[in-house]
Every structure is written in structure tokens, then in C-alpha cells.
Computed example of a mutant assay.
Amino acid sequence: MTQTQNTETAISVVICVYTEDRWGDILAAVDSVRAQSRPALETLLVVDHRPALLDRLTREYKETPEVRVLANQGPRGLSAGRNTGIAASYGEIIAFLDDDAVAERDWLRWFADGYADPAVMAVGGRTEPIWASGRRPVWFPEEFDWVVGCAYRGLPRGRARVRNVLGGNASFRRTAFDAAGGFATGIGRDGDRRPLGCEETELCIRLSRARPDAVLLLDDRAVIHHRVPPARERFAYFRTRTYAEGLSKALVARSVGAGKGLESERAYTSRVLPAGVARGVRDLALGRAGGGRRAGAIVAGVAAAAGGYVLGSLRARGGSAGSFTVAESGRDDAPEAVA
């Protein structure tokens, strides 16, 4: 890959990886990018402080020049991995794909279509779950599919402006990072067992503040399919993830203020979730499977998230919520490609 190539409308794809347990998923994710109807300029695999995985992927793609394997140049975690990919990439549009997801053939085509408008700074897509058990657990409410990293009931359909895109299926102009900086480390997943998130929400709010004219889009034609492992189909994970979301939202509110940080969540909890509870109760009354359990899961999820938010806010006030930093943006040739 050379900087002399025409990159004006080229798309670099960044896939952050951290475990050999997802080896088959990682290969499938890369294959889905290589099969795009609108080819990617390059695919960057950013390995999160796992030397054995780094070496194995280097060997796997040593004869594949359009796939580069990089070591995360920052602290452990998804945000620093994404920032490494941004800095090492050459495309003027940078897309992010989860390491346990596969993109449909026109995924990048629909992303590129959104950038025909120069005001568009980010385009996200729709993520569909692939349940390990073969079907959605009967108790699992569609309103909470974000728990497993997927599109949820309440998101707009078609193409629509949004406050933030969802990180596992998203793209940004490079100039968005020039304006707002990179992903904040200290927010989101960092190798800890607690499933935190919201790093893309915080970035998108910073972007909108730095560029008030910026348009952020959700286009549900840009589809990926995300694997949901058995452990994440269980209520224990549901409860843990919703609690962690509350902690994450407290960090976002600390960074950008509660007004913007909770703007979409207020509409979600006041409209979408009550409607979901009502549907569950109706299904229970009609004798449909899982109706009562879905309604109960929604209530439990709200309670867990609220508890996490309160605790996270108290920790922030007491100075024990931890710290986060915003990475500087820009293309950086320092992260050396291993393959």
C-alpha cells in the first residue's frame, strides 16, 4: 500500500481482534470484506496485545497485500485499537467491522453512497444477530438487542439522521477525526471482564459539537450479521451488560454532559420501552410464549442500567470513576504493518 494511490473516495476497513477463540470468525469477517461489491482499499486487522494472535494472523495474511496486520499501539482496549487503525489507514473513509461479524456484499457500497453529501461525516448500518441456539431466546426483548451489539427496536428504519452510529458497523470520514479527535480510551471495552461500551456515542457527540453542520446517518441497507455466543443468550449476561451500559453512560455524561449524553436515551426509555412492556403484557394475556418474561426483562434491564448510571455518577463525583483520554487524529505512519 502506498500513499500515492488515489484515496479520495477509498474506504479502509478496520477490524479489531483480541482472541484466538474467534479465529474462524476473524477469517470470515475478512473474507466478507474482500468479497464486497465496492472493494475496500485495504483491511487492517489490529491485534490487542496478543502476541500469539499477532504472529498467527501475520502468517495467515503474509501473501495478501490488501490485508495488513498491526499491533495495537495504545493501551489495551477497543478504543486504542480503533485509533491505531485510523492512524495507519490510507482511505479517506474508515469503516469498522466487528471481529465476529460478516458484512453483506453491498455493505461498503451503501456506506459510500451516504458520503455523496459532503455534509455527511459518519454512516452506520444495521446489525442483525446470529443466535448460537438458532433462534432468539423467547424471553429476549428486541428493544434490548443492543445488549448483544445489534440493531434494536426503536432505531429508525431506512436512511435517517441519528445522534450516533453504533461502533461495530460504522464508518467515518477521516476529517471527522481531524475535527473531533479519536476514540476516547477509558470508555468502552478494555480487556476487563465487565462489558462496557458507548465509546462511539461519546465520539459522535464530540464530533457534532466540533462540527455543528455535521450529518450522521443510519442506513439500514448496510447490513452485517453478528454472532451471538451461547453465554450472551443468558439472562446473567443481559443483566451484567445493562448494568455496564449504565456505568458507560455515566462516563459519557461526564465527558460531554448529561444533556447530549442522555438525549436519545430519554426518548428510548419514555417511549420505546413502555411500548415493549405493553406488548409483553398483551402477549401474556393472549397466551403467547415469553410475553411476561420479555416485559420482565425490559423492567430488569432498565433497573440495572439505572443502577449502573447512579453508581457511575457517584464515582465520578467522588473522583474514583477512572480517567479517559481522547486520542489525537491524523494519519500516522508510525504503526508498522506486520503483514
Rank of each mutant, 00 (worst) to 15 (best):
221 R>L: 00
26 I>C: 00
151 A>V: 11
133 S>K: 11
266 R>Q: 13
151 A>T: 13
162 V>N: 02
204 C>M: 06
132 A>S: 15
260 K>R: 15
133 S>M: 12
77 G>Y: 07
103 A>S: 05
259 G>R: 15
108 L>D: 08
143 E>Y: 09
170 A>E: 09
93 I>H: 06
336 E>P: 07
104 E>K: 13
3 Q>C: 11
83 N>Q: 04
286 L>N: 11
52 A>P: 03
76 R>F: 11
276 G>C: 01
124 G>T: 04
270 S>T: 13
72 N>Y: 10
72 N>M: 09
146 W>Y: 14
180 A>W: 09
252 V>K: 07
226 H>N: 03
176 A>C: 03
169 N>I: 02
198 C>V: 10
7 T>N: 12
79 S>M: 12
2 T>E: 11
164 N>I: 08
201 T>K: 14
128 E>G: 02
313 S>N: 06
303 A>L: 08
331 R>V: 01
318 G>C: 08
189 R>I: 00
25 D>A: 00
18 Y>P: 00
279 R>C: 13
276 G>V: 03
320 S>P: 09
276 G>R: 03
113 D>T: 09
182 G>W: 10
144 F>R: 11
123 V>Y: 04
279 R>E: 13
270 S>G: 06
202 E>C: 15
289 A>V: 07
253 A>Q: 07
149 G>E: 06
29 A>K: 00
298 I>S: 06
233 E>R: 10
39 P>Q: 12
249 K>A: 15
20 E>T: 02
297 A>H: 02
220 D>L: 12
124 G>Y: 05
148 V>I: 08
162 V>P: 00
262 L>F: 11
120 V>P: 01
200 E>Q: 14
149 G>H: 09
173 R>V: 06
48 D>V: 01
82 R>M: 01
15 I>L: 02
246 G>E: 11
194 R>S: 14
125 G>F: 13
217 L>C: 02
115 Y>L: 09
190 D>M: 13
129 P>E: 07
160 A>P: 00
208 S>L: 15
315 R>K: 13
106 D>L: 14
57 L>T: 03
255 S>M: 13
260 K>E: 15
202 E>L: 15
131 W>I: 01
51 P>Q: 08
141 P>D: 05
224 I>T: 10
233 E>Q: 12
307 G>H: 03
307 G>L: 01
135 R>L: 12
338 V>A: 14
226 H>D: 01
81 G>Y: 08
234 R>I: 09
169 N>K: 06
112 A>C: 05
207 L>M: 09
164 N>G: 07
285 A>I: 06
